[in-house]
Design a protein around this nucleic acid. Structure first.
Length: 307
RNA sequence: GGCUGGGUGGCAGAGUGGUCAUGCAGCGGUCUGCAACACCGUUUACGCCGGUUCGAUUCCGACCCCAGCCU
């Protein structure tokens, strides 16, 4: 039996989940979702979350563990995996990590530096500053504090800019300095399989079909339900997910239905493209052009990858 | 048949006698607590045929196509 954990990743709509479920028919596994959107309750159709039936059949983790107002993060994911994987192994099952949120997988694989968690108050402070003086002034400030980070981070990349400054204000140390200290990589071995369809046109078609299918299944109603809750707002990471953001905007009357559909499909294609970018340079990745259960079974029983 | 306006990259849409429109899409890339995020880079044009010109997408003429108006 394979040591450590098996990872099945790939761009959206490449068939990761189906492959994992097929594997579950043959091997005693528990699935850990590596998906930044499936963690949220009430987000089912648009995240292609496994059905209740499937969830009852095969043990799944990290699905429906947050409300949309409670942001989840790569650090949370890594922390959760560090306890989940050994737990599953103690049950004599193979942990299978399935998902396409590459930052989460990277945080697990390479570890994270010892940085402070997000701090809403500090972020707010920086946002206010940016609102009155502009992000370029924030960038200039960072230049004085951490020139290396300022060089890496574009003045327009407001999110990372804010983070770099946040870390400094919280710790008094620069992001660059903290990154230099070693991070702890994953304590258990990872065997990583990536499904990378080589026919992009075909994947685009699958993406379009799937998005239309989600709409048929009530995606708009799902977003409307989320929108009707007063605590939810469109700035939440959860609600900026592909499809949710576009439908929310449509529900606000900002676009017509057809444009919304187009925008949703486009956003999904772009997500897939970014995932390819991560995966092309992923070290140690065993790639498949399409889901290949037989090969996965070989890898699992062999206990190692020889390729 | 006549008159007028127009034909610009996959789409939208400016403009100019010789240098880059731009936006979107597509493609490539970056990525350390928002990552399905945020951001960076980038390919493809001037309806057709002639003429004027050192040089035409831009000026002139014919033709084709589209829209509107007239007969």
């Amino acid at each position: 039996m394979l040591e450590g954990a098996l990872v099945i990743t790939g761009p959206t709509a490449s068939g990761k989940s189906a492959l994992a479920l097929a594997l579950a028919q043959q091997v005693d596994i528990e699935i850990i979702s590596a998906d930044s959107a499936q963690v949220y309750r009430g987000m089912n159709i648009g995240t292609a979350k496994p059905s209740a039936g499937v969830l009852a059949d095969v043990p799944h983790h990290l699905i429906d563990i947050r409300d949309p107002v409670e942001p989840y993060s790569a650090a949370d994911f890594r922390q959760d995996l560090l306890t989940l994987v050994p737990d599953i192994q103690r049950r004599d099952r193979l942990p299978v990590i399935v998902g396409g949120t590459m930052l989460y997988l990277k945080a697990l694989k390479n570890g994270l530096a010892d940085l402070p968690a997000a701090d809403q108050a500090v972020r707010e402070e920086i946002s206010v500053q940016a609102a009155s003086h502009g992000w370029s002034s924030v960038h200039r400030e960072l230049q004085g504090i951490d020139p290396d980070a300022a060089r890496r981070i574009q003045p327009t990349d407001t999110q990372r800019l804010q983070r770099a400054l946040e870390v400094y204000r919280l710790t008094g140390s620069t992001l660059t300095e903290l990154h230099r200290r070693s991070t702890t990589p994953c304590p258990f071995p990872l065997t990583e399989i990536g499904i990378l369809p080589d026919d992009r046109k075909k994947l685009h078609q699958v993406i379009e079909d799937r998005f239309l299918d989600m709409l048929d299944k009530g995606f708009v109603e799902e977003v409307a339900a989320l929108k009707s809750k007063p605590e939810n707002h469109k700035g939440l990471p959860a609600l900026r997910a592909v499809g949710y953001r576009q439908i929310w905007s449509y529900l606000e009357g900002r676009t017509d239905y057809d444009s919304m559909v187009q925008e949703g499909i486009v956003a999904t294609r772009q997500l897939a493209k970014r995932q390819y970018t991560w995966l092309r340079s992923w070290e140690g990745l065993v790639t498949q052009k399409s889901a290949d259960l037989a090969e996965v079974l070989k890898i699992v029983s062999r206990g190692s990858i020889s390729k």
